[in-house]
Amino acid sequence: MTTPAARAVGATKIYGEGDTAVTALDNVTVEFAPGQFTAIMGPSGSGKSTLMHCLAALDDLTEGSVFLGDTQLTGMGDRELTELRRDKIGFIFQSFNLIPTLTARENITLPAAIAGRKTDTAWFDQVVEILGIGDRLSHRPSEMSGGQQQRVAAARALASRPEIIFGDEPSGNLDSKSGAELLGFMRQAVDVFGQTIIMVTHDATSASYADRIVFLADGHIVDEMFDPTAEKVLDRIKTLET
């Protein structure tokens, strides 16, 4: 069996102390296969964002450990984690993905630039072409629509050929057409380039683009589903909530 792209082992995250302590993740163990598009779903407060943040080296666990490929993140210093995010991870957030003073091109090449690496021009062109933002490269974020901004963010995430891309409700702020386009591109990245993607969402339609869905509730993994459709997901959510 191949090494999972990411995994959490006995992951526990507790916010606060004493009476006010809140357990966001409770002894979660989960693996994410490479080249797969996984959606993490769950109601608010289920711990889905916390799980993603910990997997993405943005937050640390109270107990347990997290691996990216063979690399154990737990115990790493800020500098190592930062470089890991820079070199191995791509991000697409719900909003405010781009630095407002930089053009689309500068935003896309930013991770490579801050790492002091040369951009792979051929790959850059390919990504830009797939995402259809070739005519927007010299624009600043304020001159682009929300859908275009998210596509630029996706391009940035792809441009550095990361081992894994994390999406935090990437289509949450978009109208349904733009959202569908964006998710379609993400699907394509997995199918064409074998990109690993983990995405947090609470929207059934968005989740249906994934290969696999992991359901979280109250800090536990309560279910999972392969090859989902929107209807199946909605049904499952209903049963989970009752």
Partner: peptide, 16 residues
């Protein structure tokens, strides 16, 4: 704040 957070998330070091 958000910009700085984003820069850190995508891999800018504290030194940078």
């Amino acid at each position: 704040t958000r910009e700085l957070g984003l820069l850190r998330a995508i891999g800018s070091t504290r030194v940078q």
